[in-house]
Structure formats: structure tokens, C-alpha cells
Amino acid sequence: MKARLSKWRLFSVVAMLALVLSGCGEPFLSTLQPAGEVAQTQYDLMILATLIMVLVIIVVMVVYMVAIVRFRRKKGDTKIPKQVEGSHTLEIVWTVIPIILLLILAVPTVTATFQLADTKAMDKKDKDGNREALVVNVRANLYWWEFEYPDEKIITSQDLVVPTDQKVYFNVTASDVKHSFWIPAAGGKIDTNVDGVNKFFLEFDGKKAEEAGGLFYGKCAELCGPSHALMDFKVKALPKEEFTAWVEDMKNAGEPKPTSDLAQQGQEIFSKKCLSCHAVSPQDGRPESARLAPNLSNFGERSRIAGVLDHNKEELKNWISDPEQYKPGNKMTGTYGNLQEDEIDALAEYLMGLKVQD
């Protein structure tokens, strides 16, 4: 009996710890620490729904306990409590109250749904014919992300760069199978389909971005294959001035120049074996169907390799040597032929030097 009681105590402690830890999260990753207008709206709706459910549970439990205590049959007591049947008052109460609770939840939910689905602003243009809003085309691939800024005519991969305190509108699609675009701290997920384009907007709060070090994490939220869990991307949220400077640097970026003899060898290898799929210029003019692999123009500035590995030369060499080990099912595996150790070293040297901003 004591052993069983001890197990129940241990189970209770573990359950309480799990409940407490479920509310923990980093500012760059947690939906419980909203970092923008959309995330805050969705968080408020979640809190409202939770409060309503907790209120209902408390009321039901109170009524239940009162019924148990007050009408508990006592020893020797054969009296039957007064039976209440067909009470119009009770029927009205338990019909009206749920309707009121549903309205309290439904009205703000429906209102927010229409507000968050309003993307008309992305089509507005000024007197010169320029679009007023910032628009980013997101294309999901197995297992990487492409971000195209159509008005700025630049393309990046794996790192999404956005300004803070400004609505950013997205056109999201997929090139192979269904994926789902999700930045937990900024807003809910949205599907990326191969047969259509979904539109929505996000806004990144400047103060919250500063707390997160200007970096948020994004993920694929739709099971898409063996490396679904590794389909990550990073979001760099910059103040407007810094974002404008980044755009100008990307627009004016020239052809990368190797900084050493080893990097020069790497560039030659890249031109022969990698350039048919990858690009090293943010002004990639190829059609979407020809962009088969991530744009590497600012590869040396990224914070991760392949979205999941530490950004250093050794991890890059590991990735080039055996990408299947780190992302099973990726399209890079086996497409470039076997490389010798010295070729991999030269290629890694060249790629780590690809930078747009010093």
C-alpha cells in the first residue's frame, strides 16, 4: 500500500512539473511569447477560450460537489429529495448561458479571422505604380525554403530578412509536396500548396525582436517526408533602417570574388558541379522551375548550415561529404558525384567566403 501511494505521489510531482514546463519557452520560438500583431491577437483568443473553459469546469465541479455533499444518502435516511422536473427556469438558464459564452468567444474570433485574412494592402500602388507594402514570395521545397522579394528583385534562401514594426505580406506556395509555413513567435501556420497561392501577413514587434536578439525560428508544420523535422529556417528581424541597408547591399551585390587560392579552386569546382542547381547572386534571374536548390549568395553570413548544423567550415565539409546523413531524402544527395577530400576543402573555403555584407 505504501509503495503504491509513493508511486502516485511521484506521478503527481511529474505531472505538475510537466504542466509548469509546458508554459516555458524562448522569445524566439514560443507561441506563448508573441512577438507581433498576429501572434498577439491569436494569443489573446487562446487565453479567452481557456478562461471560458476553466470557468465552465469550475461551475460544473462546484455544482457536482454541492450535489454530492448536500444530497448524499445518510445511514438510516429513507427520505427522497424533492424531484425537479420540467423547470422552465433551469431550462432557460442552461440554454442561455452557453449561448452567451459562445457569443463571447465567437464574436472576437470571427472578427479577428477576417482582419488577419485582409491582404488587400499588398496590391495597393502609389502614383508611380510602385507597391506600397513589402511583399515576400515564399516557396517551400524538400527540405529548404526560398524567399523572393519581387519588387526588390532579390532572392535568398533559408534566412528570411524582415523589417520590424511593419506589416510584411507573404505569398506562400510549394514546389513539390504540401508544406506549412510557421514562425511560432510571429503567428500561426499557413499551408504552402503546389496548386495554389495562400496569402497572409505578419508583423514583428521591434522591442520583442530586440529581446530575441533579432532572430526568430521558422519551421515546416506539415509532415512532408523523412526530414520534415529538420526543415527549419531563420528569421532576421531588423529595424527599418538596417533592413533598407540590407536590401541595398543585396541589390548592389556583385559577383563574389575568391579571397585565396584555395577559394579560387573552390569556385572552379562549384562552377563545374554545383552551379547548375545553386546560384551565388541575389539577383537570380532564372525562372522558378530552374531554381532547384538554395541560393547561396550570402551563405557565409548564415547562422546554420542546411538549417540545422553549426555554421563553420568543418560542419560544411561534413554536409558536402554526406548530406543524406543529416537530412535523409534531400535532393542534394548523389547529384554532384563523389568529391575528393581536397576538393571538399576547397569548396568549403569558397562557400564560407560568400558574403554580401562585411
Rank of each mutant, 00 (worst) to 15 (best):
D191S: 12
C277R: 11
S180M: 09
K199A: 00
S297T: 10
V107H: 10
G86I: 11
T109F: 09
A237R: 03
V62A: 15
S276A: 14
F11E: 04
V84Q: 09
K120H: 09
A245K: 15
P323M: 02
A35H: 00
C277W: 09
N130R: 13
F181P: 10
V308A: 03
G23A: 00
R304D: 00
M122A: 07
T259F: 02
A290W: 09
A112I: 07
N330D: 15
F216P: 00
A237K: 06
A279M: 07
W94S: 06
I269V: 06
W319F: 15
R291K: 13
L223Q: 14
T335S: 10
A290H: 11
A15C: 13
C277S: 12
L339A: 05
I104N: 02
K74I: 10
L275M: 10
N141R: 06
V96I: 14
D151Q: 13
K331M: 13
D191H: 11
L5G: 05
N130C: 08
D159Q: 12
V84N: 08
A185G: 05
D322G: 02
D358S: 12
L105I: 04
Q158M: 13
T259D: 11
E37F: 08
E288R: 09
L101D: 09
F170W: 08
P258S: 04
A279Y: 03
T164P: 05
Y169M: 10
L347T: 02
G86E: 06
D358G: 12
T192E: 11
T95W: 07
L105K: 02
L19S: 04
N298G: 04
E210S: 08
Q325Y: 06
I155M: 04
F204P: 03
N171Q: 15
G353L: 00
N312A: 06
D261F: 03
M122D: 02
L32Q: 06
H228F: 14
N137H: 12
M352H: 07
E301R: 06
I320R: 08
A106Y: 12
T119E: 00
R304Y: 10
N193Y: 08
V62D: 12
A133K: 14
W8H: 05
Q40I: 01
L160M: 09
M250T: 01
D261Q: 10
I269K: 01
Y149S: 11
E248S: 14
D358V: 07
K178R: 15
E315P: 02
K313R: 14
L134N: 03
D165Y: 10
E132V: 15
Q40H: 05
W94F: 13
D191M: 07
K355P: 02
